[in-house]
């Protein structure tokens, strides 16, 4: 069974008299432990697709199976549950809670998990921070960290709950190329350890880290092919 199976996905915004087809019939299948990058010009629907894959949004129509379960028809609370257990998000703007320490930020998904004891939460969060080489920054707040470090905290937060998929929407968009490359090394490692990674980028050298690239144009998939790395 495929990890993600999307069929004829539409997301249509009604803006007055005109309708905006952010996604205009997208079908895609992604297997476990794939490393996929999504590319396309601005406004082509990349973020819309990511938000749907991340269960932050619901489609206008279409089917979306995750692990064989139909997500497209789920209610609010069920979606929250999926986001918590199956998905790890990394955002372009980090989206850390500014007043909380790295540790607290990374603990958040575990808190909403509801089944993990406080002491275990702490251990798991420290382990995740150590994995992104921030074991010595647990009690720093976001404004005491560099941009690259912030994004690494965000990566630690995304992987702390052992999600099925890590989704990253332009994770290097706010970083200089050197720190961006460091983050990509991190994703490469996570992929090697068996994680499924989907990331949005508009930079070819970032996309080249993945083994498959999906190119969107006007809400449709224009190209879906293996990258150089994927062909090897």
């Amino acid at each position: 069974m495929s990890l993600i199976q999307v069929k004829d996905l539409y997301k249509i915004y009604q803006m007055g008299n005109t309708e905006v087809r952010a996604l205009d019939g997208v079908s895609v299948t992604i297997e476990k432990n794939e490393y996929v990058s999504i590319m396309g010009p601005s406004g082509s629907g990349k973020s819309t697709l990511m938000n749907l894959l991340g269960c932050l949004d619901t489609p206008t129509s279409g089917e979306f199976f995750m692990d064989g379960i139909n997500v497209a028809t789920m209610g609010d609370d069920e979606l929250a549950h999926i986001r918590n257990k199956k998905i790890g998000f990394v955002f372009q703007t980090f989206n850390l809670l500014p007043k909380s320490t790295s540790l607290r930020n990374v603990e958040l998904p575990l808190i909403y998990n509801g089944e993990i004891k406080a002491a275990d939460r702490r251990d798991m969060a420290i382990r995740a921070l150590t994995r992104v080489n921030l074991g010595d920054r647990v009690s720093h707040k976001p404004n005491e960290l560099s941009g690259g470090q912030r994004q690494r905290v965000a990566v630690a937060r995304a992987l702390v709950n052992n999600p099925a998929i890590i989704l990253a929407d332009e994770p290097t968009g706010n970083l200089d190329s050197k720190t961006g490359e460091e983050i990509m090394v991190l994703f490469d490692e996570l992929h090697k350890q068996g994680n499924t990674i989907i990331l949005v980028t508009h930079e070819e050298h970032i996309a080249a880290h993945a083994s498959r690239v999906v190119r969107l144009l006007d809400g449709k998939i224009a190209v879906d092919e293996a990258t150089h790395r994927g062909k090897k």
Partner: peptide, 16 residues
Amino acid sequence: TREIGVRKALGATRSQ
């Protein structure tokens, strides 16, 4: 508002 968005993205339900 943003904090609420982050919490929801990480799995917080409405009632939480």
